[in-house]
Amino acid sequence: MLEAFLTSAITMATPILLAALGELLVEESGVINIGIEGAMLAGAFVALAIAYFSGSIALGLAGAIAAGVAINAIFAMLVVNLAVNQVVTGTAVSILALGLTGVFYRKLFGVTGKAFMVAPIAKIPLGPLARIPLLGPVLFNHNGLVYFTFILVPALWYVIARTRYGLRLRACGERPEAADALGLGVIAIRWQALIVSGALTGLAGAFLTLAYANTFVENISAGRGFVALSVVIVGRWNSWGLAAASVLFGAAMALQFGLQALGTVVPYQLFLALPYALTLVVLAGFGGQAAAPSALGEPYRRQ
């Protein structure tokens, strides 16, 4: 029971964390992308469609990366190059992706209501580690995407906090004018962050269809892109914090499924609302955006 719950929590946390790590990069560069949901949906749909018709999970994952990058490229073109409002653009990108995936899903798979299943991504037990009681099955018996996601946590922390590139990235998010004056290329760095984020978010979407649901339904992401947004806030723009927040929210989701099955008096909606409510509390409590990059959300134009 506990083992199943914890395993499920890690599984639920993975796509959220993957997308949140991408958003962290983007926000460190000074851009806020509230269209994560759009790239995630696009990744989820393309991954399933390609994996279903080609029979290859690897091609599906590659397609998901391409789809996420394509969505973020549209966003980057408008937000980075044309310096338009990031919030409205992000919303529009989400709506657009929701519409496109819905229309193409009905077209490709018809309206038969038949489920289009694919075989799940294989799990890779990590040798003797997977045989540790409780910890083994919970932590070391997952598919490759889960390991990849959690290895990204220290990797991204190192890149952002300890490397020259990370310093440049943060300079673009804190003082874009100064970064530009130093010749750091604000536009290029923000594009890079958005491209990497698009790839990670597309993979997060692929996780939903190829590893979790093994099929696609309209709006399969069901707000996970926005949970990723709150993960960045609750995790205080630190990749370790992001991991902790993702696991917490993943556990809330896993618990919610359990409660719904058990039919307890505790309304399961409470757990579904938890990420969002907690984000509000954290924001109100910490007095706004103290930990956020100073130039977050401000378009940068050369004067």
Partner: peptide
């Protein structure tokens, strides 16, 4: 064609208006 096409139109209209209006 499924009714989600309307959302494609909504998203595109917003993006295009934004692109038209940009101070750039």
């Amino acid at each position: 064609i499924s009714p989600e096409l309307v959302q494609v139109i909504q998203g595109l209209v917003i993006l295009i208006i934004l692109a038209f209006d940009t101070p750039a």
